[in-house]
Design a protein around this nucleic acid. Sequence first.
DNA 1: TAACTGTTATACATAATATATAACAGTTAT
DNA 2: ATAACTGTTATATATTATGTATAACAGTTA
Lengths: 129, 129
Amino acid sequence: MFIKIDLQSEIPIYTQLQNRIIEGIVSGDLKAGEPLPSVRTMASDLGVNMHTVNKAYNFLKQDGFIQIHRQKGVVINPDGMPEVTSEYLGKFKQEIRPIIAEALCRGMKEEDFSTFCQEVFNNLQEKRG
Amino acid sequence: MFIKIDLQSEIPIYTQLQNRIIEGIVSGDLKAGEPLPSVRTMASDLGVNMHTVNKAYNFLKQDGFIQIHRQKGVVINPDGMPEVTSEYLGKFKQEIRPIIAEALCRGMKEEDFSTFCQEVFNNLQEKRG
DNA sequence: TAACTGTTATACATAATATATAACAGTTAT
DNA sequence: ATAACTGTTATATATTATGTATAACAGTTA
């Protein structure tokens, strides 16, 4: 686990941790069924409190990215990732709407938008084989 | 001004207001040089506190979307909108990265992503002539 | 038995968000 | 001049979100 958190960021630690784990799954660093460090170990590694990690884990569990077994531990969901549901799509559009609005406002063309997104796509999948 | 705020949303009111104004500029509802309601009037219209509006206005001023003249009032920046600076591009990628990461994780293809974004693009620009 | 799991509970500190009230220094209209 | 309006600043308060600290519980696992 090479997860790094920015303690000075305005983004909550538990949100950063959620994002890093999802990015780990996308990059292939974290594979289906692979165990994650316990809440106490992860907290110790990151230098944060146990409950902060627990909060991130529970959000990821709620969305289906990981499974938590009471006395076993935490694993990347071995049954596969959650899908593009209509509920998720609603959240997706709500989140991306203000980003696109500001981009348009600043004169970014849809073509440039696609190019910048493609850079992010490639960067996230960089480590895949 | 037909700005609506969701007081039950987890998104801060001042953030929602910023987004609605930027969307208004994109849609053409708000044109360059056009005045915005005073902080007190806007607050009264939305049913929120004056300082909440003032906070939103000042963020928009800081980014160059509006101008605030001490005893005149608030107007959409008549000199044009801020551009796609490298600083903004950094913020853009930081914001869109976790959104794309989750989309990839859920198996959304880059083609589908573009399609969904295009829907948002069209929706935002709907009212343009 | 000891060490480890996630979970739950309580308590505390700090920051962010939002409101409430008041005053100030400049317009602008009457 | 007076009144009504601007954005701005200051102070105070309440609520929520975030993060930490400590402890205990029930169930594995070595």
